[in-house]
């Protein structure tokens, strides 16, 4: 579904990604972990071109999205993204947050979009907040809404960029729960996170990134019990 070929990303003279080749299949739940500065978030942000790769190709459903002629907006509609800092639209209430893109992009009528937004909000237990503004919600609530806002676009893959890192500890659980349900429904997910428990339970594959490359990857049982790379061993000994 997503094919990454020799991906490089440079910020000035600082090379953050030093050649990543990776394949992500439909239905996979790939969890990316690694020390900060290892390029995890940059890699994720390259997948929907929020960061422009310096070199290399990203092929999504057979289309090379790094080609300047590709309509990146159309591709992004199929790739939902959840950010560390939620990024709900501060000037719109929750319902408008969820219906703006589907309606503006003419994917659904206003009525359909509203009805679907309510259904999605019920799913995460926040339908009573439909008229509230983002500023009135807790971090956990905002992140759950950010997830369903992305789902309202009917994406084929969901990208999560440290979705729980900015949350108070007691709110992490409610967000992970929504993500877990999403995984069970078969959504393709790429998750950058520090939540090792989530990686262990939900991932079909764990990637360990260090210094701009994928240092090691394995299914979670193997990854956590028998890490091979010394950097992985060192990292896991610190975080577990």
């Amino acid at each position: 579904m997503i094919d990454v070929k020799d991906l490089h990303k440079r910020f000035g003279s600082n090379e953050v990604l030093k050649g990543i080749t990776e394949h992500i299949d439909r239905g996979e739940k790939v969890v990316i972990i690694g020390p900060s500065g290892s390029g995890k978030s940059t890699f994720l942000r390259c997948l929907n071109l929020l960061e422009e790769p310096t070199q290399g190709q990203i092929i999504f459903n057979g289309t090379d999205i790094t080609d300047p002629k590709t309509d990146i907006n159309a591709t992004r509609q199929k790739m939902g993204m959840v950010f560390q800092h939620f990024n709900l639209f501060n000037n719109l209430n929750i319902l408008d947050n969820m219906t703006l893109a589907p309606v503006q992009l003419k994917l659904r009528s206003k009525e359909e979009a509203i009805q679907e937004a309510h259904e999605l909000l019920q799913r995460v237990g926040l339908d009573d907040k439909a008229a509230a503004y983002p500023g009135q919600l807790s971090g956990g609530q905002k992140q759950r809404i950010a997830i369903v806002r992305a789902l309202a676009m009917h994406p084929e893959v969901m990208l999560f960029d440290e979705p729980t890192s900015a949350l108070d500890p007691e709110m992490v659980g409610e967000v992970l729960e929504v993500m877990r349900e999403l995984a069970e429904e078969g959504m393709t997910m790429v998750v950058v996170t520090h939540e090792m428990g989530f990686a262990r339970e939900v991932a079909t594959r764990v990637l360990f990134m260090d210094g701009g490359v994928v240092a090691e990857q394995a299914p979670p049982e193997e990854f956590f019990s028998h890490p091979k790379h010394p950097r992985t061993q060192e990292f896991l000994s610190k975080v577990l």
Binding site: T75, R76, Q77
Partner: peptide, 18 residues
Amino acid sequence: VEAGQMEAGRSLGMNYLT
């Protein structure tokens, strides 16, 4: 306006002007 607001809009597939 935080850069995240633009990024969120773009990540949903809306173009720059929208």
